[in-house]
């Protein structure tokens, strides 16, 4: 009798070990930078995403309704601010048109190639958020655009407020967005962002490489020592890294300090986007990204 129970316990242990080995093999296989998903994955992702969109959008609409009632009081003030902002933009628009025409003429005269000329003509594709992952270490956001709509991995995703993240996995009708909160410089799969400061695009530089969960701040390093970055500056993408397009808002500078070695400065940046209640995002398509992303 004792022998039998011992035998069963060993068998259970054996199965557990086998499961553990299988599990580690699956992780090892899936942690690599996979370009394409297999068809069962695509099928499950798209089927589930199709159902999820019936829940997420109405819930967001209901939540938005309550939010609207709550913010009714501050609406007047906000309206005033927006009107002033619109007036400022209208003034800048005339100036902008002149500068753009001049710029295009100069590019033509200097003999820029077709690819160089269209390098910064980004296309913004609107997408609805379908679901958010219930896992604190993997907060992927699912959107309802996929490879059939021209979405590729490593495309940047922004909301009205600023940069949300990059597309990490694509199935035919849905895609997964890895938000900025998953940035980590010790991780194998995350990609750092080359950043600069709005208004001093050609003078400032820094690399946003990780997100600190404990403070809720992005960490920007490799800032030159003589950089005039100050608290309150708006950090935007510079487009030098060839992953993120240029000009997308990342956040505002909260602190600037001298780095560990004393040669460069580091800054903490508060993200512009609130990652919690997202409903609509834009996927940024960079012309000719297919060639550069490989």
């Amino acid at each position: 009798m004792i022998e039998v129970s011992k035998h069963i316990r060993n068998k259970r242990l054996f199965v557990l070990m086998l499961g553990l080995i299988l599990f580690i093999a699956v992780i090892g296989f899936s942690i690599a930078d996979r370009k394409n998903l297999s068809w069962p994955e695509n099928f499950i992702k798209d089927t589930v995403g199709f159902v999820q969109q019936w829940f997420y959008k109405p819930a967001g609409y209901m939540a938005g309704l309550f939010e609207d009632i709550r913010t009714l009081r501050t609406l007047r003030e906000e309206n005033e601010q927006l009107r002033q902002l619109a007036a400022a933009y209208a003034r800048d628009k005339a100036e902008y048109n002149f500068v753009r025409n001049e710029n295009e003429r100069l590019k033509k005269e200097l003999g820029f190639t077709e690819r160089q000329q269209s390098l910064y003509k980004y296309k913004y594709m609107i997408a609805q958020v379908v679901a958010v992952s219930p896992d604190p270490y993997n907060r992927t956001i699912r959107i309802n655009l996929g490879s059939k709509d021209g979405v590729r991995t490593n495309m940047a995703v922004t909301s009205v407020e600023g940069l949300v993240g990059i597309v990490s996995k694509v199935s035919p009708f849905h895609a997964e967005v890895m938000p900025l909160t998953e940035l980590d410089d010790s991780s194998l799969t995350s990609k750092s962002i080359a950043a600069t400061i709005r208004g001093r695009e050609d003078k400032s530089f820094g690399i946003v490489s990780s997100y600190d969960d404990e403070t809720g701040m992005l960490h920007m390093n490799k800032i030159p020592e003589n950089d005039e970055m100050t608290v309150g500056d708006t950090v935007i993408t510079s487009g030098f890294g060839n992953v993120y397009p240029r000009g997308l808002t990342i956040g505002t500078v909260e602190t600037v300090q001298v780095g560990d070695m004393g040669l460069t400065k580091v800054a903490s940046v508060r993200p512009a986007v609130d990652f919690d209640h997202l409903s609509e995002v834009f996927v940024v398509e960079v012309p000719g990204q297919e060639e550069t992303s490989e």
């Binding site: 699956v26 992780i27 994955e41 992702k45 993997n138």
Partner: peptide, 21 residues
Amino acid sequence: LLQDIVYYGHLMGVHTFLMGL
């Protein structure tokens, strides 16, 4: 497995293994 596939971010198999066990 369903959760691992649908929200596939960094790696796969964590929820399958832990929920089963």
